[in-house]
Design a protein around this nucleic acid. Structure first.
Length: 268
DNA sequence: AATCATGTCAACCGCAGTGCG
DNA sequence: CCGCACTGCGGTTGACATGAT
């Protein structure tokens, strides 16, 4: 917090949560009397020129503070208190389309302030989405295994292998195998993932959303089925890098990864 | 009963957009 | 075109409340 301390006066606490800054402006919690003054002034003169308003209204506050107090608290018709499930659902849907544009979301809601919606999102709805395995920003399922730190030790021992090769794969092979594992562990079809890669911020429809939630609940439940896929060793990776060709039918997930790299190349 | 963790809420700050001279 | 003032927005903070251990 930016508070200028001037001599002995400096940061003078008024009450528990109110203080005066270096410019002599009161900060922090508003008193009932201040609220009354502000409301009375605005009711009589309307809202104009927030900068000079505090002086005219007899308030020891900055214009910004008055504006915020009016818009978020004193303005008539503001709906306060608990959000209904319907409101929460609407916020989530609007957020999927608008992102963190709280003012825009607030305009679509029934007399809720942007601050109120933002607070509720950050304290409650965001965590709810995370618990469901959804990225709060994209509203898409989080594919955890795609965010991996590869080490050779990690690679050499942990992965169950269907390959007949005995040597440990290198980092490159490891990376491909990890990515393939990550993709295969989710039960998305190819088109779905392609659409995410191509249009990552497009909101899903209500029905899709429900399907996603159902599916994620199932996956999050621990009964995750692992599709079979081939573990690649260095030799296979080398052949792949040289040829640039895929055997699509036998390694669909790695093929998907391969296609994805082209999509990303295009995007970059 | 005490302590810690988490949630809620109001208010602040910094920055970007806009209008005007 | 530039600089300034003002407004609005989004991110963050911090006090308090509540629940869990």
């Amino acid at each position: 917090m930016n508070v200028t301390v001037i001599g002995l006066v400096g940061l003078r606490k008024i009450g528990r949560k109110t203080w005066v800054d270096g410019d002599g402006m009161k900060k922090g919690e508003w008193t009932a009397e201040e609220d009354q003054n502000l409301v009375a002034y605005i009711n009589e003169h309307g809202v104009s020129d927030w900068r000079s308003l505090p002086k005219r209204a007899g308030l020891q506050r900055c214009g910004k503070s008055c504006r915020l107090r009016w818009l978020n608290y004193l303005r008539p018709g503001i709906k306060r208190g608990q959000f209904t499930p319907q409101e929460e659902e609407k916020i989530i849907k609007l957020h999927a389309v608008l992102g963190n544009r709280w003012a825009a979301i607030a305009k679509e809601m029934d007399n809720r302030t942007d601050n109120d919606i933002k607070n509720h999102w950050n304290s409650c709805l965001k965590k709810r989405l995370l618990r469901k395995g959804l990225d709060p920003m994209t509203h898409e399922p989080i594919i955890n295994n795609l965010t991996v730190t590869i080490t050779n030790e990690e690679c050499g021992s942990s992965s169950p292998t269907t390959s007949s090769h005995t040597s440990s794969p290198s980092g490159s092979a490891c990376l491909l195998n990890k990515l393939a594992t990550g993709i295969s562990s989710r039960q998305h079809d190819l088109d779905k993932i392609k659409s995410i890669l191509l249009e990552p911020r497009i909101a899903s429809s209500g029905q899709d959303e429900k399907e996603e939630l159902k599916r994620d609940h199932k996956i999050g439940g621990g009964e995750e089925e692992q599709d079979d896929f081939l573990i690649w060793d260095d030799e296979e990776v080398r052949r792949f890098m040289e040829s640039g060709e895929m055997e699509y039918e036998t390694t669909p997930y790695v093929s998907l990864f391969y296609e994805s790299t082209h999509v990303l190349d295009d995007l970059l």
